[in-house]
């Protein structure tokens, strides 16, 4: 079991009942789970209305325009979907599409 934290910022909390912070327990062992699994679990367990999945996902990955941070670091520097998840990790998803 891996316990991680997930945050939705920049207005993205609309996909999760306006709840910004979430705790997620992945039923996988440390070393086996990647960012891909986290995304799958978010879609399954956190997104309240399945109609909202396309707001978050496009072509099997996080939609362009949503900024992903792993422990406050741009996921582009952390192998994106291939990142190996560790206990206590914090994943932040921020929408940049909302008005300025």
């Amino acid at each position: 079991m891996i316990k991680v934290k997930v945050e939705f910022l920049g207005g993205l909390d609309i996909i999760s009942n306006h709840e910004r912070q979430h705790k997620l327990t992945l039923p996988l062992e440390e070393g086996d789970a990647t960012m891909k699994d986290v995304i799958t679990y978010i879609c399954k367990d956190i997104i309240t209305d399945q109609k909202d999945v396309p707001v978050f996902i496009e072509d099997d990955t996080v939609r362009p325009g949503i900024l992903v941070l792993i422990n406050d670091t741009d996921w582009e520097l952390e192998d994106k979907e291939e990142y190996v998840v560790e206990s206590g990790d914090l994943f932040t998803f921020t929408s940049t599409l909302h008005g300025g």
Partner: peptide, 20 residues
């Protein structure tokens, strides 16, 4: 835009984000 969002995030600026 990405850098503006990152700047606001890292500086912990107080901003409002709901679509009209």
């Amino acid at each position: 835009q990405k850098e503006i969002v990152l700047y606001a995030h890292y500086k912990k600026l107080d901003y409002f984000s709901t679509e009209c």
